[in-house]
Design a protein around this nucleic acid. Structure first.
Length: 460
RNA sequence: UCCGGUGUGGCGCAAUGGUAGCGCAAUCGGCUGUUAACCGAUGUGUUAGAGGUUCGAAUCCUCUCACCGGAGCCA
């Protein structure tokens, strides 16, 4: 007999079924039967199994069917006599695949997310983490769908890279040399005998390589792991995270912002439609304003203002900032929060940042004071997208590299893109885990990725 | 990395210098088409680690470690 998923059983037709899953809780009735709630992760809800104690072999397995154990149940799907569920499975035959002894850490009670992180191998079996992972999966799928529907080409940029000065953050080094005894020449480590024959790192961004393919296929996107060796200890930073980076030829900054806004709205709509039950849970237990917030983001135009206007807005406010806003300096987290949470109460896109505080590849505006960069700021989360129109003029780009003390020789191929058939183009990067955070309302980014990597943490 | 906080039975927490306790979970029993089941009983501790002050330390001091929150960096 074919196994049914609980997702299908919950609205299924009456008849004989086979269901397999993990026992979430059990309630015994001394009337001679037990209620077992089974979950197989196919949906948020459980299915109730009614197990009569007169079942063949029941007494032998009764003690094994505890919270956490895995069982297989053949039975009849029938309308439930009790309240709380429309239907249930009347067991005919039960097999225990794997019992869970009394030291099973996930008992039927609330556990803190901090505790669950210590048992990352078992936390997928909780309500919250199961819901997070289904939403995460939907978002990943919808990201591909969004771009595929628009003719973007999915591109795999390299994980191992040689550029050590992309400016996006500290990098993890990749080497096969013996750290306790590396080969040396004149006291310096000799990387010519390393695996790749030179010093290599894990990527901090696929953008530069993405531009190569945008200059041929017009619209591409990457969706892959990204590594930053920053000693960041916050609820929104990971050392290993997933980033989505579209890169589009012939897009100016306005087109770029349009795409980013459409993208986020599309993803939120998809989740509301396809993960209704999980989202209902987040709205009840994690953040009671979640559904309302998501609807607001979908229905309202993102506020767009220039960096200069943002500074002006901050300076005229009566808010007591730890760091007063001043033109030419980066916006502080408190500034970004004030704009998105207090002034506009919706997503905000700040653009045209001072040239001095942004990367070399961003297109210089007329006058040379600002560059065509943009950040999308979400209420209660902060920056979720950072992007820009890229500098396509060879001479200007070369000069900016020199101004920022970068060696043009290391970027010879990047410069070549401007030398041969250059085109105006733009792109942005979206932090995937931050998106999952925003959608679910989970406060800590470590609880929206299966295996979080943070400073001092690479377990599991 | 900086600032602040926390670390006590399996889990969540209380005890602020004087006999370490409560809730949940667990175990046993009772009851019930139950559903965060309910009622009763039982067991559970090197108070993160090391050192110090004190007649006496979970509590005060020093160091180490871990975790949490905020900042910086950014996605």
């Amino acid at each position: 007999m074919k196994r049914s998923k609980i997702k299908d059983l919950r609205n299924g037709k009456e008849g004989e079924v086979l269901v397999k899953g993990w026992v979430r809780t059990r309630r015994d009735s001394k009337g001679g039967f037990s209620f077992l709630e089974i979950n197989d992760g196919s949906c948020f809800g459980n299915i109730q199994v009614v197990a009569d104690h007169s079942l063949p072999g029941y007494s032998a397995i009764e003690k094994q069917m505890t919270t956490g154990s895995c069982i297989s149940v053949r039975g009849k799907l029938v309308a439930s006599q009790g309240k709380g569920q429309s239907n249930e499975v009347q067991a005919i035959e039960i097999e225990v695949y794997g019992p869970a002894p009394v030291d099973y850490p996930l008992q039927k009670k609330r556990h803190s997310f901090e505790f669950l992180r210590e048992i990352a191998h078992l936390r997928p079996r909780t309500n919250t983490f199961g819901a997070v992972m289904r939403v995460r999966n939907q978002l990943a799928f919808s990201i591909h769908r969004f771009f595929q529907e628009r003719g973007f080409v999915y591109l795999n940029t390299p994980i191992v890279t040689t550029s050590d000065c992309e400016g996006a953050g500290e990098m993890f080094q990749v080497t096969t040399l013996d750290p306790s005894n590396p080969p040396r020449v004149d006291g310096e480590i000799d990387y010519s005998s390393d695996f790749f024959g030179e010093k290599t790192f894990l990527t901090v961004s696929g953008q530069l390589e993405g531009e190569i393919f945008a200059m041929a296929l017009s619209e591409i996107y990457t969706f892959g792991p990204t590594f930053r060796a920053e000693n960041s200890n916050t609820s929104r930073h990971l050392a290993e995270f997933w980033m989505v980076e579209p890169e589009m030829a012939f897009y100016d900054l306005g087109d770029n912002m349009d795409l980013a806004e459409e993208f986020i709205k599309y993803l939120l709509s998809e989740v509301m439609e396809h993960c209704a039950e999980d989202m209902e849970f987040f709205n009840q237990r994690i953040d009671t304003t979640k559904l309302e917030t998501l609807k607001n983001v979908i229905d309202n135009r993102f506020e767009r203002l220039t960096y200069s206007d943002a500074i002006h807005e901050l300076q005229k406010s009566t808010e007591n900032f730890v760091y007063p806003a001043e033109w030419g300096f980066a916006l502080q987290a408190e500034h970004e929060r004030y704009l998105s949470e207090k002034v506009f109460k919706k997503p905000v896109i700040v653009f045209n940042y001072p040239e001095k505080i942004k990367s070399f590849y961003m297109k210089l505006n007329e006058g040379g004071e600002t560059v065509r960069a943009m950040d999308v700021l979400l209420p209660n989360l902060g920056e979720i997208i950072g992007g820009s129109q890229r500098e396509e003029n060879y001479e200007v780009l070369l000069q900016r590299m020199k101004d920022k003390d970068l060696d043009p020789k290391e970027y010879w191929w990047y410069l070549d893109l401007r030398k041969f058939g250059s085109a105006p183009h733009s792109g942005f990067g979206l932090g995937f885990e931050r998106l999952v955070q925003f959608v679910t309302g989970m406060e800590n980014i470590r609880d929206v990725i299966p295996f979080p990597r943070t400073p001092k943490h690479a377990k599991f």
